[in-house]
Design a protein around this nucleic acid. Sequence first.
DNA 1: AATTAGCACTTTGTACTTTAGAGTGCTAAC
DNA 2: GTTAGCACTCTAAAGTACAAAGTGCTAATT
Lengths: 337, 337
Amino acid sequence: MDDRKKKILQAVIDEYVGSAEPVSSSALVEKYNLNYSSATVRNELAELEKSGYLDKTHTSSGRIPSEKGYRFYVDELIKDDDISIEEMKYIQTKLDAKVNEIEDLAKIATTTLSEITHYTTVAIGPKPEKQIIEEIKFVLLGSRMLMVVIVTDSGLVKETIIKYDEDITQNQVETLNNLFNAKLKGKPLSKIDKPMEEYILSEITYSVDVIKPIIEQINRIVEEAGTIYLEGANKSFDLPEFKSLEIAKNFVNVLDEKELMLDILDSGMAKDINVYIGDENDKEELKDFSVVTFKHSVGDKDLGTIGIIGPKRMNYSKVISVMKYISKKINESKKGE
Amino acid sequence: MDDRKKKILQAVIDEYVGSAEPVSSSALVEKYNLNYSSATVRNELAELEKSGYLDKTHTSSGRIPSEKGYRFYVDELIKDDDISIEEMKYIQTKLDAKVNEIEDLAKIATTTLSEITHYTTVAIGPKPEKQIIEEIKFVLLGSRMLMVVIVTDSGLVKETIIKYDEDITQNQVETLNNLFNAKLKGKPLSKIDKPMEEYILSEITYSVDVIKPIIEQINRIVEEAGTIYLEGANKSFDLPEFKSLEIAKNFVNVLDEKELMLDILDSGMAKDINVYIGDENDKEELKDFSVVTFKHSVGDKDLGTIGIIGPKRMNYSKVISVMKYISKKINESKKGE
DNA sequence: AATTAGCACTTTGTACTTTAGAGTGCTAAC
DNA sequence: GTTAGCACTCTAAAGTACAAAGTGCTAATT
C-alpha cells in the first residue's frame, strides 16, 4: 500500500470515527486537504475497497472502514500520543489521590479511563490463586464479632465479619491467629478445601461452631476476589451505533454476563495492550464491538486487567494513548512505595 | 364512586399495566367478564374520564389511567397480597444467606426486590450522623500497614487501611486505640472537625505524619457511608415506555445523579411505604416516573431506605406486596440476633 | 501515465396520499 | 338503566413521488 492510500485510509477512519456517517470522496478532499480531486480520491477509494480495507453501505454510498481497515489502522497508522496536557494532568490528579488499597487504585484508573475516553470500561483484579497470603489476622470487635483480615503479597487486603451468639475470648483469637497463619501463610489465595478444613477442625480443641463460619467466610472472600468492576455503561448510549434499542439492549446484556466479561479480560496476552476488533473477539456476542485491554503490573507481578468495550468505530488512537499513559503512571505510583 | 365504576377502573389499570396499550370498552367486557355490554362500559368510561381518573391518547382511542386514577388505585383498590408462594420462598432463601454485615443484607434485599419486580431498585444506608460509634479499633497488618475499623450501634462495620513509610509499633497502636476510643466512642458517626483534629494532635506525643492520614481516612469513610446502591438499571430498557431512546437516556441520567437519588430516598415519610406517582415527585426529572420507597428498621432504629423507580404504569400491587414481605422478613431476621 | 471534469445512474430519506381498522359517542330502541 | 347500531375520528401502515448525496465510468486534460 502506497503512502497516498495510507493517507486516505487514515482520513476515512478519522472522519468516520468522528461522524459515524459514510465518508464521501468530496468530504475527504475538503476536510483533509488532499491535493487531488474527488475523482482521484474516488479511484483510490475503489481500490481500497477492492483490497478489503473499506466497505460501502449501499452502491452509491460513501465508504466506511472494514474490520481489516481498522486492523491496518491500529497496526500501522495509529498515533500513540493522542493525549493532551490537560488530560495528562487530570489523570495525574486522579491517580495521586491518597489510596491505600490496591483495589481502589484500579477502580480509580478504570473510572478515569472511562471519563476521558467516554467509553465503557471494565476491570478485574489479579487472579486470587496467583496471590500469596502474607498474613491472616483475627480481630475481636466487641465480644461477639470476629473480623478476619487477609493480606496478600500484591497488597490486596480483604476482610469479613462473623457474628457469634456467644462471647469469643482473646485466647481463642490467639489460637486462631496461630493456627491459620501456620497453615496458610505463604500459600496462594484459594478456597479452603475439605482436607484442609478437616485438618483445621482436628487441630482445634473447642467448638466446631466457631470454626465453620470462619471457613465459610474465607471461601466467600476468595470467591468474590475475582469480581468485576464496571464503569460508564451508560456512556455508550450516546453513541449513534446504539440508536437501535436492539443493539443497546444487547450491549447491556453483554455487560451483565459476568462470566463473559471475565473471559474477555482474562484472554489478554502478555503484550502490553491488546486490541480485538469485531470478529476478532472470541465471543459471538462481541462481534459488533471492539475490546481493548491492558494488564497493569509492577515488575512481573500482575495486578489486574482493565479494558474498554466500545463500538468498532472506536477512537483507537485516543484509547491506546490514554491507556499507555495510565499504565505508565500506575507503575510509577507503585514503585514509590 | 360506585362499585361498578371501581371495578371498571381497576380493570382498566390492571389491563393497561399489562399491555401498555390504551384499553377499549370491548376488551374490558371480554377479559374481565363484566356483565354489561360494551356500550354501558363506554358510558362509565366517559364518566370516569370526566371525573379525571382516565385519559385518552386521542379522541377515538381507548382509555389509559391518569395520575389521579393511579392514586385512587393505590389508595383504594390495591391488593397487598399479590405475591406467590414461589416468590416468598425465593425471597426467604435469598435473605437467609449468611450475611454478617448489615450493608450486605440491604444489598441482597435490593437485588432481590429488583429480580422479582423487574424494576430498577436503589438503596441507601442509614444516615451516618444518626449512627453511634461503638468502637474504633486499630490493627497492625505487617509492620507498616494500619487498619482502622469502626463499629456502630446499628451493626455497620467500616474499615480502611493506611500504609506508612516506616514501622508502626504495637505501643503506638495501643495509644491510638485509647485516644480515639476515649474521644469518639458514643459519638455520632460524622467527620472529624478542625477542633477535634487539633485536640487529637495535641494529645499525641509522636509524629503528626502518623495521625494526619488516619483522620483523612476516617473522614473519607464517613463520607462514603451515605453512598447509594443501584440494581437492575438495565431492566427498565425492556419496558415499552423506553422505546424512545430519549426517555431511556433521561432515565439513565436520573439514576446517575447521586445527589438526586439521595434526596428521593431521603424524602420518605415515617409511613412504612411511600408512593409517589408522576407529578407527585418533588423532582422535575421524575415527573414521568413513579417512585415507591420503604424504610427498613428494627424498632426505632432506621437501617436505611430501599426504593423502586419505574414507569407510572407500574404494577403497584405487586411492588407493594413484595416490599411489605421483604420488610417483614428483614425485621424478623434482625430480631433473631 | 496520472489526473480530473462531467454526467448517467443508484439509493436513501422525507413528504405526501391513501386506506383499513380500531374505537368512541350518540341516538333511538328495548 | 341498558344496549344495538352507526356515523365519525384518528392512527398506523403501505404506497408513491422526488430531491439530495454519492458513486463509477468515460472522455478530456496535463
